[in-house]
């Protein structure tokens, strides 16, 4: 059979999917073993036992200076910033995106401006945020919001455009004005599409979060890895990176599940049209 017609069975699929992960871990262990054989004090590629004890230290034992358990304190700080920022960005993007997508005058007012803002590199604005909002939480949340909101708005305008014109006309023949078209026809239909856009913006959101924390913070996952970098503490950095990756994956997975649960009509409607 041709390759394009051969499909892996469940077992083969799991094997294939697991292979790159196993290869990466294996390669790390081999390289780490080689370096440690040469120099037992090597800090660059710590072995499993070193990683394990470092993980124990940050995830279970309270910190000697503050009394907090570092990993959880950092996670709470980072996730708090991220979720607040995602909430603000989603809400404002929904408001602006639907208004601009539906009302031609609002679009004329906002669309070119949003496009321009979208092109400003958010990290270049970070110094301005630090100066204007101070070094506290506001500037970090602000960076994430500034970084992903223009993208979300542009995406939402496109999603509103994608709705068939017939539906807007139809709603008007049923007696809806602009407001009712927006809340009963447009918003319910763009919400599941916005979940997709938020999933795509999770990557940039984490990027901005860690950048802001690296530059000025007193807690947070990004703050911690940039802090221990000074001591070459790879045994802390590596578990932190894995943990951040896992958190990002869980958020993505959670949003996808939410989409299926909250909008049961969406999957069929998307494949049907």
């Amino acid at each position: 059979m041709r390759l394009i017609n051969r499909r892996p069975e469940r077992g083969t699929w799991l094997l294939l999917a697991g292979l790159p992960f196993a290869l990466a871990v294996g390669a790390y262990l081999v390289a780490s073993g080689l370096r440690l054989a040469e120099n037992p004090d090597d800090k660059l590629l710590p072995g499993l036992s070193t990683l394990g004890s470092a993980l124990w230290r940050v995830a279970v034992e309270p910190d000697r200076r503050t009394g907090d358990i570092l990993l959880w304190a950092d996670t709470a700080a980072s996730l708090g910033r991220l979720l607040v920022a995602l909430g603000i960005a989603s809400l404002s993007a929904l408001l602006v995106g639907v208004a601009a997508g539906l009302v031609p005058h609002v679009r004329a007012l906002l669309s070119p401006f949003v496009t321009a803002v979208c092109l400003v590199p958010p990290l270049a604005v970070l110094p301005i945020l630090f100066i204007a909002l101070g070094l506290g939480e506001a500037s970090k949340v602000g960076l994430i919001v500034l970084g992903i909101t223009p993208f979300l708005i542009r995406d939402l305008i496109l999603r509103v455009d994608d709705l068939p014109r017939q539906q807007i006309i139809k709603a008007q023949t049923l007696g809806a004005g602009t407001w009712l078209v927006a809340i009963r026809v447009v918003v319910p239909q763009v919400l599941p599409r916005m979940v997709d856009a938020v999933r795509l913006s999770l990557g940039p959101a984490w990027l901005f979060l860690i950048s802001a924390e690296a530059i000025a913070a007193e807690s947070g996952l990004g703050y911690r890895i940039f802090l221990v970098r000074r001591f070459f503490a790879m045994d802390v950095i590596l578990p932190y990176v894995a943990w951040i990756t896992l958190l990002a994956f869980l958020m993505d997975w959670g949003l996808r599940k939410l989409q299926g649960k909250a909008f049961p009509w969406y999957e069929a409607a998307r494949s049907g049209s």
């Binding site: 068939p164 139809k170 023949t173 009509w265």
Partner: peptide, 17 residues
Amino acid sequence: PGPDRGVVFQRYSVFPH
């Protein structure tokens, strides 16, 4: 368009949500 004139199109006449 208003409620005095109803319409049925060939497609997209109903709301998928």
